[in-house]
Each structure stands twice: as structure tokens, then as C-alpha cells.
Design a protein around this nucleic acid. Structure first.
Lengths: 222, 222
DNA sequence: GTCAACGAAATTGTATACAAGGATTTGTCT
DNA sequence: AGACAAATCCTTGTATACAATTTCGTTGAC
């Protein structure tokens, strides 16, 4: 779980994509990136391959790398898998959470409450992450946590944009409430179901998602 | 899903590990690998990074790569996640399988039957893979299929060794039978449960797994 | 005899040079 | 004028050279 700090190049390029500086479909020229970051092509190539492994970019042999195009279909699929993974985490957490785990979950839940009350979306966004990670940890399943965190990281930018939609923070918090109650009651099925409902993309959330898919490229000069 | 064929170096090194030629904990020296495969260090490094991304090896900054040590705890966790992923596939397959999907699943199931009847473990191993992939495909969830295939690939060597244990092929086939019936009956819950039971490590299967963890390194000269 | 410190060798990380394969542009022919 | 073909340029893939860090061995002192 160390995610070696040394590899800041990986994160820098990732940021370029996550912030929308590089839009889906854009080519990632090795020499441009190399000159931009003041290094040679070698470390750039290594960073690109790592990013390709996570699915953020696509490597076409002899034809360079492009930012992965994520269509609505695939995006919904990713959220669907995410919902299942987090539901399993919640189920296990309901069964295996220690008092210390429960305390941590509760603390982050209260922090979410504060952020929601203050309508501080950025704070809520941050505490929301912590809340979900606390539940991951309470599941006491290292491998599952790693997979979940990896996918959560992959979906990060879309989640952030989703929270911007009207009333989403309030709804999100209410859903958290249901999850917390189920976990504290050690009701595994209820916890899983509440978490799945919290993550899954359905109804009006789908249109929010579509908007978030268009937003980054609309924000760019074309 | 192309898994570019050009990258045979990746597969070659992977084979070295999967066949037990390189045991968990062994260091992967870049120059040794380079001379062994008759290439320079550059492509070796790239292959190593890809392998690190899949979790097969571990990259310690400035200290080289080692074959990932997979303890019993982590192994059980991986099978646990695998069971959940495959269960979701089965659930979706029960709901969304087309007649063509059902035919494919049936065909591979019958091929498994033939292999089991002939006590041909290698043939069963192969057809078992095909059977599971057919169910993946029937789920019609591309992203889920990718994740499932990736993890299945990661667990491949352990599965193979598991099948070697006595009576496992017969049991495996009976479990397949239950999965197929549930899918054909479009009973999503039953399909998920049957699949989960098929994959999950429990009871005597756990001891088989422990044996499979020791087998590769015992086979080596130490 | 053991431990520590210094040094040398080996190994990883980075840069640069070279080779090979696409993509683009230009020129010619219809 | 449009389309096809060929040649050039640009980009990726690979090799090699160099720098930096770690590790192992040796030597010395306690």
C-alpha cells in the first residue's frame, strides 16, 4: 500500500488528465511531456505504462498513448462494479467492525454532517472519501480494500462533479446515515444494500453523470 | 481487451513466475533477465512495471523487483473477491443471457463433462476457463468482465494446482451444473449463490490451497 | 570475537543516441 | 481537381552510456 512517493511523475501526468487539462482522446506525446517536466523520455514512458495499467490512458503499439475515452456505457459499468465492491465492504464491515472501526466511521460521518450543514462541497468531498475508506478498513479485507481504492481513485473526478449537482450532498449524507445505522446494527444485508443504493447510478443521477462526462471537454477550447 | 501480442516479454517473465521457475521472494535482476532474453534492460524494465501493476511482482524503489510473496491470508482474500466478482457475473448472466450465450455456456459445460468423464485434468482445466469466460460474456458487462478476467489470470496457477486435488474435478463439475441450471432458469439469486459457493475457499479446500502455496517452492532446489 | 565504519562493486534510475515503423505531405497522373 | 503513390518527417521502441544509491565485503578497533 505504499504507492511509492518517488513516482511523482505518474501523479503529475494523472493530474493533467484528472483536471481536464488533457481531454479524453488527446494524444500524449512523449517528448512534449518530457520537456514539460524537464526530464528525459525514459521516466515519462514508465509513468505512461503505469497509467495504462490503471486504465486511465490507452497505449497503442507504435502509435503512442491517448487519454482513454470513457463513454457513458462504460462509465455506468464502472459505477456498477464500484457499487458492488463497496457493498461487499459494507457487508463485511457490518460483520467485522471493531469498536475502534465504528468510532472512526462515526467520526467521519459526523464530519460529513458538518460539511453538509455548512454547504461546503469541497469539505464534504474530502470527508466523503475518508468515510468510505473507514468502511473499507472496517471490512478487514486487505485485497478487497486495495481493489476498491483503485477503482475509487479511477472514478474520483466523476464523483466530484456529481456532488456539484443540486441537492446531491444532502442526499448523499442521508444515504450515509442509512449505511452507518446498518453497520452499527451489524445488519450485513442492510449495510450492503444501503451502500449499493448509495453508489449505483440510476434515475436522475444518470443525467448528472452524462453532464459530468461532457463538462471537462466543454470547458476546453476545441 | 487487446492485450497486445507484441508484448511477449511480459508473458515470458510471467511464465517464469507462474511455472515456479522464479519463486516468491526471488529477486528479478534486470541484467540477468536482459541477457537471458537477449534484449537490453529497457524493455525488461517496462515488462517489470507492467507485472508490478498486476501485483505479480513488487517494485521497491532503488532496490529492485521481487516476486510478490502471497501468504495464505492474502490468497484467501483474493479468492474471496474472485468469488464475489464471479457471483455478480453469474447473477447478471441469469438475467441477461441471450439464447446464443446460453448455447455457448452449455457447450463448454458439456465439454467439461467430457473432460471430467475422461478424468483428463488438463482438458478440464482448459474447458473450465472457457466455461467461466462464457458466463462473463453472458453478463454483458464489459468492465466487470475485464476485472474478473484480470483476477482470474492472477489466480490461475493456484486454481490449476487446486484441481489436482482428489475428487476436485468431480465436485467442480457438479457445482458447474448448479450454476448452469440457475442461469438457464433465469434465477439470478441462485446463480450468484451457486457461483460464489463454487469459487470460495472453505473447508478442506483451504488445506488444498495451503498445499498449493507450498508446492511451487518445494519443487525447487533451495 | 564481534561490531562498526569505510570502500568497492553491483544494481537501479536517467539520459541520449540510434533504429524502425507510421503519418503526413508533396508530386504526379488520370 | 481529385486521387493515389512515394518520399520525408516525426514518433515510438530499443540499446547503450552515465550517474546515483544501495549492498556487500573487508579492515580496523574495541
Amino acid at each position: 500500500m505504499s504507492e511509492r512517493r518517488a513516482d511523482l511523475l505518474h501523479d503529475k501526468i494523472e493530474d493533467l488528465i484528472l483536471t481536464g487539462d488533457l481531454a479524453p482522446g488527446d494524444r500524449l506525446d512523449e517528448v512534449s511531456l518530457a520537456t514539460r517536466f524537464g526530464v528525459s523520455r525514459t521516466p515519462i514512458r514508465e509513468a505512461l505504462m503505469q497509467l495504462a495499467a490503471t486504465g486511465l490512458i490507452e497505449l497503442r503499439p507504435r502509435r503512442g498513448a491517448v487519454v482513454a475515452e470513457v463513454g457513458p456505457k462504460r462509465m455506468v459499468e464502472m459505477f456498477e462494479v464500484m457499487a458492488e465492491l463497496e457493498a461487499i465492504c459494507a457487508r463485511l464491515a457490518a460483520r467485522r467492525a471493531t469498536p475502534a472501526d465504528e468510532e472512526r466511521i462515526g467520526a467521519h460521518h459526523r464530519a460529513c454532517a458538518a460539511a453538509a450543514a455548512a454547504s461546503d462541497e469541497d469539505a464534504y468531498y474530502y470527508e466523503n472519501e475518508e468515510f468510505h475508506e473507514a468502511i473499507d478498513a472496517a471490512a478487514h479485507q486487505e485485497f478487497l480494500s486495495e481493489q476498491t481504492r483503485a477503482l475509487r481513485r479511477r472514478l474520483k473526478p466523476y464523483r466530484r462533479l456529481q456532488l456539484r449537482s443540486r441537492g446531491r450532498v444532502r442526499n448523499s449524507f442521508d444515504e450515509h446515515e442509512a449505511v452507518v445505522r446498518a453497520i452499527l446494527a451489524h445488519d450485513a444485508d442492510a449495510a450492503a444494500e444501503a451502500m449499493r443504493a448509495h453508489i449505483v447510478v440510476q434515475g436522475e443521477r444518470f443525467t448528472d453523470l452524462l453532464a459530468s462526462l461532457e463538462a471537462p471537454r466543454a470547458a476546453r477550447a476545441r
